[in-house]
Design a protein around this nucleic acid. Structure first.
Lengths: 223, 223
DNA sequence: TAGATTGTTAATCGATTAACAATC
DNA sequence: TAGATTGTTAATCGATTAACAATC
């Protein structure tokens, strides 16, 4: 009963990393307290929204002064479940996979890419940064032996579904899918897409909307 | 008046690329018509939602048969503004930038990365796939000379704000930000973030929720 | 104390979903 | 024709925002 069935709203979850980055910066600058008003101002949000979001972490503030930065940081990290690192494997050691394997930021998200797998024999035995690359044939054994729960999928779209199914059959619980393909998998598997097309679609739409609105205001000026 | 001030809902925009991929696949398979029911089934959505989304493109279907695939594809591409390619420049030729420059999929989004810029002198004159890498010092001249409107930002977080400000001062209208940093820019600039932290936060939350719910149902089974 | 800020409760807003008539 | 599917109008749902009392 303590934690609701539905949990914290996804939009709130999405804002947490931004809060976290800013709070860490404040901490480095030697600050101790911060108000929701300040956070909102810096991130372009409304103060009330920041307060609602913060209330999801269970942290309480002090009127007039705000919130204790270090406590907020810890609470957000805990709420996101980033306080104990999760091992993940990477499938696909192409350009994108390579960039992901070398990405330094994952440490602070509690994500650790421990191994990469690829069909290309030429890549077996090599390393992407610190991450060793193995044959796809070793996937199943590796997952079983190392109790990995998360798979990061960075293969071409044409192989995505098939590869995802292999991951699922190996017992992977969650897939972070970077391939431009919508996966059809059993309900129990958690799938999170990071889709460049989707992101660019939103950018395109915002640009279009901005231009349309500027045209409107432009016309209005002539009245 | 033809196009509303607010335009198409962002959630709908975000689903368009998925429809597009699936429709293109159907087209390749030689199909001509498709129903909203089928699309929904394949993408894990509700038929009513697909119909609502499609209605935003202005395309009308035929009861009992559905929609003409080719017309739907064209309408979605047009609605997204992907029918005439937009030039973009890439800032930051590191691992991520390199992967973005070589990404083949951008063609179909109407995005073309025409040049990359980096502070690292060792990279000047080289190429990321087809994309030439220049000095950051050449940025302003290049933007002016080539009428580029979109900047893809793939620099380290510490340089993101500063680099974005340069882009804005050079007249860039929209920034696609891959750096894990929230940019503070003038209202008129369109900023779209593609943030690994945010995406992973949602994945973490879904996993947590799934586990919580499984525990709940587990307990319920014992009653 | 006065005033800024918090947290709660209620109102608003936008998107999803349901209900159902129209139609091929 | 019968039945599946469309498109519209209304209901529901969830998140954002507003209002305001509590408090340091």
């Amino acid at each position: 009963m303590e934690e609701s069935n539905r949990g914290i709203p996804i939009p709130t979850i999405k804002r947490f990393p931004s809060y976290l980055r800013l709070l860490k910066q404040y901490l480095e600058e030697g600050k101790e307290m911060v108000s929701a008003t300040t956070l909102a101002e810096e991130l372009g949000l409304k103060p009330i929204q920041v307060r609602k979001d913060i209330s999801c972490t269970g942290i309480e503030g002090k009127p007039k002064v705000g919130f204790t930065i270090i406590r907020l940081i810890e609470a957000i990290i805990h709420t996101l479940g980033w306080d104990n690192a999760t091992d993940a494997i990477l499938i696909g050691a192409g350009h994108l996979g390579s960039a992901l394997a070398r990405y330094e930021g994952f440490d602070s998200y509690g994500l650790k890419i421990v191994a990469a797998f690829d069909i290309d024999q030429g890549k077996w035995g090599s390393r992407l940064g610190d991450v060793p690359v193995y044959s796809l044939a070793d996937l199943q054994d590796y997952i079983k032996a190392n109790h990995v729960n998360i798979g990061v999928l960075a293969v071409p779209a044409a192989q995505a579904q098939e590869t995802a199914e292999i991951l699922v059959s190996c017992g992977i619980l969650a897939i972070w899918n970077f391939a431009p393909k919508d996966l059809k998998l059993p309900e129990r598997v958690v799938v999170q897409r990071t889709d460049l097309a989707t992101s660019f679609a939103v950018l395109s739409a915002k640009v279009k909307r901005k231009i349309a609105n500027e045209d409107l205001t432009g016309e209005a000026d002539e009245w």
